[in-house]
Design a protein around this nucleic acid. Structure first.
Lengths: 216, 216
DNA sequence: GTCTATACTATGATAGAC
DNA sequence: GTCTATCATAGTATAGAC
């Protein structure tokens, strides 16, 4: 479920100056390539999906894919990065739509709820962990790190703001705490089953857990 | 860092009745295969490591590997499962070594500390997320699920015990909370850098975060 | 029971014609 | 932009040596 604000330029053949000419034909196709590939990866897995499979689903030949992306790995990186960016943009919007006098806790709860929903819906790979297995190699690895960093920073900023407002204890290291949150959220994609518990429930449980803790 | 109690039989060619004859030569070699492969995967990544690379590092030919493991994927699954098992065994031991009258919180703290240490040391793939990308296919997928389940259950049991002792709020859904914890722990492998913060620190921060929350 | 030699097939990728 | 070769290499199967 790619967001509508998904620009899909990440990891494209060349990093062009950000959208000077709006939409060439190749950009349209590149977008299609990404959508179809994302769908195949999600359904059949990265490994089980061959470049020929992707090309066939697009009605083209495997060689043509390389006009749009340098490699299969670049294709994966683009999908991952786009998902991160789209998720982050969605979160920012949700928080921005809150009343101006919203507490840090309210922002946190809204962001968690939106995050859980996005990640579980469509099994979004959002901040997916393609790292542990050294799945991505250079240069895709470094590029992905940038996108992750921005995503992590979002959570860190909420914590920092909460500290400033006196809602969050000042001795909590925001760098570590934000990683715990991101980790817990990322992992949702791996265990969530649509029938078990609603995403709203999970979001509420997470919010309460991180804010109030487990203690009785 | 494979634990010493690592049996390394997971995903072997056949599920033999658990260790009737203790150590045949092939078992020794199988163990070596796993260690060398684990090292290569960790250093160069799963994809960048070919079966021929593995065989060469072992001083054998690629075809010979198939005497021990059915596929490259089975090799990965065995490593992943072994790591989960070893991590879990270590955690259980740490908790078992606590005084009999230890509180649930103390158990939790000890387990978190041990977990962070294991996961960060040697970039252990412990409960690694090879799932998001549908990396593992059947039958390895189902097999891995079993090992994960056992690991998750460990955390869930601690929470349940805490509830019974009145240390943890009863309205906390243990299934979801344990997933949050496992997710946060798993994710440590992806951001931990040995120079930044000591594992002890991270463990303490995590324990406090999950028990007391972020609130001021 | 343990390993090698060898070959088969599919894959990711490239170069050049259209 | 897209296709048509074409290539090198990958994972894997197997027959048979020791």
């Amino acid at each position: 479920m790619q967001s509508m604000l998904n620009k899909s330029r990440a990891s494209a053949k060349r990093k062009d100056a950000l959208s000077s000419t709006p939409m060439k034909k190749s950009d349209i196709t590149r977008q299609r390539v990404l959508e179809v590939t994302s769908d195949l990866f999600r359904r059949n897995g990265y490994q089980a999906t061959s470049m020929r499979d992707i090309a066939a689903a697009l009605g083209m030949k495997s060689g043509s894919l390389y006009y749009y992306y340098d490699s299969k790995e670049a294709l994966l990186a683009a999908i991952l990065n786009d998902n991160i960016d789209a998720t982050l943009a969605g979160l920012k919007q949700v928080v921005a739509n809150l009343p101006a006098d919203a507490t840090a806790r309210q922002k946190f709860e809204a962001a968690i709820a939106a995050s859980v929903k996005t990640i579980s819906q469509a099994g979004d790979m959002a901040v997916a962990s393609a790292q542990t297995l050294s799945f991505l190699q250079e240069p895709e690895f470094s590029e992905q790190s940038e996108h992750r960093r921005a995503y992590n920073q979002f959570w860190r900023d909420i914590i920092i703001e909460g500290k400033e407002k006196g809602e969050i204890r000042k001795d909590l290291p925001d760098a570590v705490a934000s990683m715990a949150i991101v980790g817990a959220l990322t992992f949702v994609a791996e265990w969530y089953e649509s029938d078990r518990s609603s995403t709203d429930n999970i979001g509420a449980i997470f919010s309460r857990l991180f804010f109030d803790g487990m203690h009785a």
